[in-house]
Simulated scan of single mutants.
Amino acid sequence: IPNDGTSLKDMMKSHEKPCLIKSLINPREVSEMESTFGSWMKDTALLHDERIWVAEHFSGRVVKEYKSIGSFQNASFTMVDVRKFFQGCGHTVHNGSLYYHIAGTPTIARFHFETRRLHTLTMDNALHHSLAYLLQNSKTYFKVAADENGLWLIFASDVDDSIMVGQLDQKTFSITSYINTTYPRGKAGNAFIACGVLYVTDTKDTRVSFAFDLLKGKPVNVTFDLRPPGGVLAMLSYSPKDRHLYMWDNGYVKLYVVAPWETTLYMF
């Protein structure tokens, strides 16, 4: 699908100095969890919101809300019904709302925590059932990602199994531009987006093995180690607010600091 969105073109103007992650540093193990699968999230947009939300397992209808990292480690939480059953571990909390995939459908939900209002976005021509996952290891069909440019939706095309990325407009809750990375979903373990670049891990989630600059529409030459082999990496998300990677790795939630950026090297 051609990349012809005007908003993406506008963003390219501010992308004159592209950046890549060189490595991850300062790993921090935050807590051990009961479930192998799940997502833990802080709001990627609201600067002073220290709440943490946890969606346990790869399917459910409630999330746990913690007031702070201290409450999270002390297991002091309230339950929030998000109105529909979610699927996978690709959720994101952004600007007061939880974005998630409604199980069994080609639909993305935006649930606002304060108003409890639910908005939906239907994605045609996207894989969304019958175990044809975007990310097999975490049983995820859709992944919502936030970076310095806003929100993105990562999914797999039902035409050729390629990994697709759509730019999400928050005001209209719609996709304004599509990017086809042409990278097959069968080679992907997990994925995240930072500074306009999509990073994809190998099938064992040990290394970042593929990267694609979404604003330039080109693969970039970068690989780096992520984690030792073994266990399930259920969640891998970047937060532009603190430039940390959030992980749910083999039943533990962890934080990694993103190392300083470097100049992008394009592959032709």
Score class of each variant (00 low, 15 high):
Val165Met: 02
Ser14Lys: 15
Ile175Ser: 03
Phe111His: 07
His48Gln: 09
Cys89Ala: 12
Leu127Gln: 13
Trp261Pro: 02
Ser174Trp: 03
Ile108Cys: 14
Tyr100Glu: 00
Ser68Ile: 11
Ser31Lys: 11
Lys9Pro: 10
Arg83Ser: 10
Ile102Asp: 05
Asp124Glu: 10
Gln73Asp: 12
Tyr199Lys: 13
Gly60Tyr: 09
Tyr238Gly: 11
Tyr133Glu: 01
His112Arg: 02
Cys195Ser: 03
Thr120Gln: 02
Tyr246Ser: 11
Asp158Asn: 15
Lys187Leu: 12
His244Leu: 13
Ala191Tyr: 05
Gly70Phe: 11
Gly104Met: 08
Ile163Arg: 01
Gly90Pro: 10
His15Thr: 11
Asp147Trp: 01
Asp124Met: 02
Gly38Cys: 04
Phe58Asn: 15
Gly189Lys: 12
Leu153Asn: 05
Lys67Gly: 09
Ser39Tyr: 00
Asn3Met: 08
Ser76Asn: 10
Pro219Tyr: 06
Arg83His: 14
Asn149Trp: 14
Tyr183Ala: 02
Ala234Val: 12
Pro228Phe: 08
Gln136Arg: 12
Leu131Ser: 08
Lys139Arg: 07
Val258Lys: 14
Leu151Pro: 06
His94Phe: 13
Cys19Pro: 02
Glu262His: 04
His48Glu: 10
Thr78Asn: 09
His244Ala: 02
Ser138Val: 08
Phe113Ile: 12
Thr44Lys: 10
Ser39Ala: 15
Phe210Thr: 07
Lys17His: 10
Glu56Trp: 01
Leu118Met: 10
Arg243Val: 06
Phe37Gly: 09
